[in-house]
Every structure is written in C-alpha cells, then in structure tokens.
C-alpha cells in the first residue's frame, strides 16, 4: 500500500515534469528558426553580436490585436539575423513583467504596443534610462521615453469616416455611433467625426455608446439602439469587430435595408464585403495593424547602423495616414493570408 502511494506521487511528479518539458521543447522548436547564430558566437567568426530586439504587444483579445500579433511574427521572419523575442500580454501587469524579462535578456531595442499607456510608462522609462532603443507603436507613453513613436492618424480616421457618411447620406440623415474603449485613440476619432457632423445641421446624431471594440458588446449595444431608435440611416461602428457585431443585430432585427454600417480598421472579412459590394458595408477605412511591423523595421534599421547618427535625421513621431477603402480599391487592402 505504502509503495503504491509513492508510485502515484511519482506518476504525478512525472506528469508535471513532462508537461513542463514539453513546454520547453515547444520553445526550442520555435526559437531555432529565429536565433541560429546566438550560440555560435564563437571567437573565430567574431562578428558583432546579433541584434536582440524585444517586441511586447497585447494578446489577441480582439481582431485588431490578433492582426498585430500576426504582423509581428510575419515581420520577424523577414529579419532572420535578428534575435527576436515576441511576447504578448493580456494586461498591463503582465506586460510590465514581460518587459522586465526582456531587459534581463539584454535586448538592444524594444518595440512596444502598450496594453495601456499609463502603467507601462514607468517600466519604459527604466528601459530608456538603460539606453535601450524604444519604438512605441499606436498607444503612446505619457512621458517622452520612446525614441520613435508611430501611430495611425486617429483624427483623420474620424474625419474621413464622417465625411464619407455625410456624403453617402447626401448631407441628411440620422447616425448612431458605437465608440471604443475610452482612451485617447477613441477620443481623437470621435471628436474629429463629431466636428464634421456638426458642420452639417441636417445630420442628426442619435446617440453614442461605448462597445469597447468588442463584437459581443457591439451586438448588445446595437440591439438596444435598434429598440431605442425607430429609424437609423447609418450606424458608425468605428471598428470592424464592432461592425460585425452590429451587423448581426441589424440583420436579426430585419432592418438591414434601412441603414448602412460604417466599420473601420481593415479586417479582411470586412474588406471582402466592401469588395463584394455588400450594401450594408459600402466602405471601410484603414488602421493597419501592420504598423507593428513598421516599428520593428525601424528598430532594426536604426540599430543596425550608428544609432546616434541615424537618429539625427529620424522623425520622433510618425503619423500613418488612414485611407478610405471602397469597392474600387479594396483589392489592394485585401490580404487573404493575414488573419486580420
């Protein structure tokens, strides 16, 4: 009896051991593709140490961040001579830990898309003080600790969306708005759009409600709006995930002939609908998750040369323009291989 008990303990311990070992193997398999030369830094070759760049991004909690994850992997494969560490986090606390790990590993550069700006700023400052080159993408730190900051033009995103809506409605009609997570990105977009709507007195904004860039939430909010407003001419969903949720609600209510939905960001499924001239989705606007790849490219190019000299002419703040996607040009924004 006693021996049997011990055996069971062994079985359990072995189970834990093998599970962890499996995890380790998994890691070795993935890393072998990216860090071939790390171990072979032998004295005979004596090349400069491989560049180490850490990429810290939010976990794929909605379509756009899934796109960010895909583009990060995609871009890392284009630079096999860089020792990449791509880590994703679901919350700021985990992302701070990730960045600490990357600093322990001695990265030369960091490309960071923050889950949230404020709690990530202190750890970014620590990295900055250690001389790590930092490229900040999309959600900015609240202190000037990044060497380069890349973001989409959120004001143009709002403005161009609203201008299309006004034009499509012929300057007259009612608009209901789904907003994203309350933050500067959302504020910039919505305020720019509201400024356009304000210039057209016959455009009536029925209401604005946050649906958190989330499909399920958008479905619920749209259901409420459909009950609240008997006539809606346009639903500005302001995001593709939210547009898909809204679309479901509109179709289930049988009101898909009454209005059109304006999405945003450029998810391939939604771009496909534009391409196929779906009457519910007449157009889209880009907000490319590939900007993470742009940031990674800049990080590699600056660190591959003489950092100080290159930074003399590099812009500190890059604003990526957003473009309207219509059935005519949709093809060039459609990436069937991307997951977004």
């Amino acid at each position: 009896m006693r021996t049997m008990r011990l055996n069971m303990q062994n079985v359990c311990l072995t189970m834990v051991l093998s599970l962890i070992a499996l995890g380790g193997c998994d890691r070795q398999a993935t890393v072998s593709t990216t860090s071939v030369g790390a171990a072979s830094g032998a004295p005979d070759a004596a090349p400069a140490r491989k560049l180490r760049i850490g990429v810290s991004i939010p976990a794929a909690d909605h379509g756009w961040t899934a796109g960010v994850n895909w583009w990060a992997k995609h871009a890392s494969q284009l630079y096999p001579n860089v020792d990449w560490s791509i880590v994703s986090a679901l919350n700021p606390e985990k992302q701070v830990a990730d960045i600490e790990d990357l600093m322990v590993k001695g990265v030369d550069g960091l490309v960071i898309l923050a889950t949230e700006s404020a709690p990530l700023t202190p750890v970014a400052r620590k990295a900055h003080e250690r001389g790590v080159f930092i490229v900040n993408v999309d959600r900015g730190f609240l202190e000037p600790v990044a060497d380069i900051f890349i973001e989409g033009d959120n004001k143009a995103f709002g403005r161009k969306s609203a201008e299309f809506i006004v034009e499509k409605l012929g300057g007259k009609g009612s608009v209901a708005i789904l907003e994203g997570i309350p933050c500067t990105v959302n504020t910039d977009r919505v305020e720019a759009a509201m400024a356009v709507f304000a210039r057209h007195p016959e455009i009536k904004v029925l209401g604005r409600q946050p649906a958190m860039w989330n499909r399920q939430k958008a479905l619920e909010v749209t259901e409420n709006m459909l009950q609240q407003y008997p006539k809606i001419d346009c639903l500005w969903a302001s995001d593709d995930d939210m547009a898909l949720g809204a679309m479901q609600a509109v179709k289930e209510a049988g009101r898909d002939k009454e209005m059109f939905i304006f999405p945003g960001a450029g998810m391939k499924d939604v771009v496909k609908m534009v391409m196929d001239k779906d009457p519910l989705i007449p157009a889209n606007i880009t907000y490319p998750p590939s900007m993470i790849a742009t940031g990674m490219h800049l990080c590699v190019s600056v660190l591959s040369g003489e950092r100080e000299k290159i930074m003399q002419y590099m812009p500190r703040h890059l604003m990526i323009d957003v473009e309207l996607i219509t059935p005519e040009n949709a093809k060039q924004y459609y990436f069937p291989d991307s997951i977004y």
Partner: peptide, 16 residues
C-alpha cells in the same frame, strides 16, 4: 517566470 523567459505563449501557460 520559467515559462515566460522561454517565450511559452499565454495559452500554453494557462494549460500548464
């Protein structure tokens, strides 16, 4: 921490 420094993805970590 060990899973984290080895870049084991979130989903695997939760399963472990």
């Amino acid at each position: 921490k060990i899973l984290s420094i080895n870049n084991v993805p979130e989903y695997a970590r939760l399963m472990f």
